[in-house]
Design a protein around this nucleic acid. Structure first.
Length: 690
DNA sequence: TGTCCTCTAAACACGC
DNA sequence: CGCGTGTTTAGAGGAC
């Protein structure tokens, strides 16, 4: 209940704190760097160095501004990070992102991912589009750098020529206009990103790229900007004091240090105030502002300004425009926000690229033919292409096709499309329970997890599966269909980034689930214990009844079958498909008889081999789906381990469990303890007969 | 509203 | 004693 949300809140807080402190650290580094660079201002600095320096400086400005904002918010009590956590999801990611300008920690990524109303597919689309944007932006920046180089050369030449100060001013103005153009584009890109993020389901349609992106991108292609630049630069002829003014001219260096903003804002802001949207200097600006005249402005929705962290109420579109021009004009803060957002996007892109690479490597390693189109990454939609692991088809064949039985089941049917993570599962981080299936314990197929394997591996998003489902999956994915508790832990941490923290919580939950669910069978040998799963029982989804003491009756043998066998198979649950516990029991028996652990079909010991075969026949088709690899009964553990006695988790014997094919075994196993158990019997008889 | 399921936390036991 | 493991219970919330 509250505990879960509590942990989330805690983690949010820590993420923010980490981010903030990281930002501080980076700020210090950046300051040092800037300082060292700034103390040796020189026209000899290369364009690349300048660009780098500009980036550093801009980042530093962003951090500084954001830190200031944070401080202000905290002082005013309007928006503490804590409160941010509880605010509607729309604002949180941006806020978080704004507070962590440089590096997005996994926690922050988690926040973003969790609180966005985005499915992984939408995230993919978003990232794709942002990638395209960033590509263009990179081109633009390269172009800009080149122009700056040219400008620098020009300035140097003109310096020698000794031009008039008035012309210098004009050059500065013109260049500033261009820089503002660049910034404007960045802002619009950010707006686009935000609109994508915020509108989530409503606007992001994979096959429908009708987003502001296109006109925006097309409106600002480098060639046109080059033309723009020509227009801007054609008039100016002179410049002096280039080295002095360069930083102030440059957008990204408008605030070199904490003392700079006032000075630089004097330079920049006049434009912003007189022409907040900068539509005068360039005809191209018209095309940009044209978009803003559309009432479907990405920064405006539901009467609220959607600028990151703003949420100002604007009664109509005109007032919104007014607000936009006044409050979000080209100034240091907006610039910083843009750059921060750029960092966010870049980080996401990096992450995506890495994950794609990993996925490719994994699939290659698994010899899976990926039908996933390389150019259009939709790694989350592997339904049709992934037969990912052999466990997908072997471990839980009955789970495909599965049919989620509740609308809240996060797993969507295959027919509905690739989305596996629904808005709810993505959004509700708190007390909302994520169930694979509420009414029936429909097993997860490996494909279910595989669809979003990469996603869950890297995003700290809580998987929409119950612990029981995940434990079962972990066990079934193991080669021997059995895992120790620690191996189960490892599987969880390996497969889900979410389970890489709060270990005490989820580990306890795993143990509880293992104990509580009848489907999990504990098998013990001399070296410890491991867990297997009874799939049929899993589908029944029954718990061991509360208040019903689980009797420990160690060292009871159970009839002829194990008369020669000191191993302790307390209770093999009746099931049609639980080859695994059966195999475990057989392994135990074989181990006790020093029988080499071959497949059950090729066992050397005639008695046990026949028994096993008889059991297989008895179990009939239920075993078929697992006998494709006879290795199921191969030694699950090391031969040495397998040679030792095995102890199967004892289970209170349900009356109905005596009616299965293995009733002989279980009744043979009958001990006084079981009779005692029957005192608790209150379950309907025959309910399990299928 | 009641029941069931799930999750979380906690207490306790046991063995190493 | 600490730790890992396993069991059990209580309580809360969600779904039906």
């Amino acid at each position: 209940m509250m505990q879960e949300s509590g942990t989330e809140t805690k983690s949010n807080g820590s993420a923010i704190q980490n981010g903030a402190s990281g930002g501080n650290h980076l700020l210090e580094c950046s300051l040092r760097e800037v300082r060292s660079n700034g103390e040796t201002p020189s026209v000899e600095i290369g364009a690349a160095d300048l660009a780098h320096l500009q980036q550093q400086q801009a980042l530093q400005v962003a951090r500084q501004l954001l830190l200031q904002q944070q401080q202000q918010q905290q002082v005013s009590g309007l928006k503490s990070p804590k409160r941010n956590d509880k605010q509607p999801a729309l604002q949180v990611p941006v806020s978080v992102a704004m507070m962590t300008p440089q590096v997005i920690t996994p926690q922050q990524m988690q926040q973003i991912l969790q609180q966005q109303v985005l499915t992984p597919q939408q995230l993919q689309v978003l990232l794709q589009q942002q990638q395209a944007l960033m590509l263009q932006q990179q081109q633009l920046q390269e172009f800009y750098k080149k122009q700056q180089e040219q400008l620098q050369l020009q300035l140097l030449q003109q310096q020698h020529a000794g031009k008039q100060p008035k012309e210098q001013q004009q050059v500065a103005t013109q260049q500033l206009a261009f820089q503002q153009q660049l910034l404007q584009m960045q802002q619009l890109q950010q707006q686009h990103l935000l609109s994508l993020q915020r509108q989530g389901l409503l606007t992001i349609q994979p096959g429908q790229p009708t987003l502001p992106l296109q006109p925006l991108a097309q409106g600002m292609i480098p060639t046109e900007l080059q033309q723009l630049w020509k227009e801007v630069t054609s008039s100016h002829t002179a410049e002096e004091a280039a080295s002095n003014n360069h930083s102030s001219l440059d957008l990204s260096t408008t605030c070199v240090s904490s003392s700079a903003p006032s000075k630089t804002s004097l330079i920049i802001n006049p434009h912003a105030s007189t022409n907040g949207q900068l539509s005068v200097h360039t005809p191209k600006r018209e095309s940009l502002s044209h978009e803003e005249h559309s009432h479907s402005h990405p920064l405006y929705g539901h009467g609220v300004c959607k600028w990151p962290g703003c949420e100002a109420v604007c009664e109509d579109f005109q007032s919104f425009l007014k607000h936009l021009n006044s409050e979000h004009a080209l100034d240091d803060r907006s610039t910083a926000q843009c750059r921060v957002q750029m960092q966010v996007v870049q980080q996401l892109e990096l992450q995506l690229a890495k994950d794609k690479e990993r996925l490719q490597a994994m699939m290659t390693h698994l010899h899976v033919k990926s039908t996933e189109p390389k150019a259009t990454p939709q790694p989350l939609n592997l339904v049709s292409s992934v037969t990912l692991s052999k466990t997908a088809s072997e471990a839980s064949p009955q789970s495909l096709p599965h049919t989620p039985t509740t609308p809240t089941a996060p797993i969507t049917p295959v027919t509905q499309g690739p989305s596996v993570i629904t808005t709810t599962s993505m959004h509700n981080v708190g007390p909302i329970r994520r169930r694979y299936s509420d009414k029936y314990n429909v097993p997860i197929s490996s494909a279910d997890i595989a669809q979003n394997q990469e996603f869950y591996k890297n995003a700290e998003v809580r998987p929409p599966f119950t612990y029981a489902s995940l434990i079962r999956q972990a066990i079934l994915e193991s080669p021997e269909k059995q895992l120790t508790l620690n191996e189960i832990y490892n599987w969880f941490t390996r497969m889900f980034a979410y389970f890489r923290r709060n270990a005490a919580t989820w580990k306890g939950a795993i143990r509880t689930n293992l104990s509580l669910h009848k489907c999990f069978i504990r098998v013990e040998d001399e070296f410890g214990s491991f867990w297997t799963v009874d799939d049929e029982e899993f589908k029944r989804g029954r718990h061991i009844q509360r208040g019903r003491p689980r009797k420990y009756c160690p060292d009871e043998n159970f009839g002829e079958l194990v008369a020669h066998n000191p191993s302790l198979i307390k209770n093999i649950q009746t099931s049609h498909t639980y080859c695994t516990p059966l195999n475990a029991a057989l392994q135990a028996s074989m181990a006790e008889n020093s029988i080499p652990l071959y497949t059950t079909a090729s066992m050397g010991n005639p008695t046990l081999g026949n028994l096993a075969n008889a059991m297989r026949e008895e179990l009939n088709g239920a075993m078929e789906h697992t006998n494709s690899n006879g290795s199921d009964s191969s030694p699950g553990r090391s031969p040495m381990q397998a040679m030792h006695p095995v102890h199967v988790k004892e289970e209170p014997l349900d009356p109905d469990e005596n009616e299965g094919p293995l009733s002989l075994v279980t009744t043979a196993n009958h001990s006084p303890d079981f009779d005692h158990d029957r005192d608790y019997e209150d379950e309907p008889v025959n309910e399990d007969i299928e």
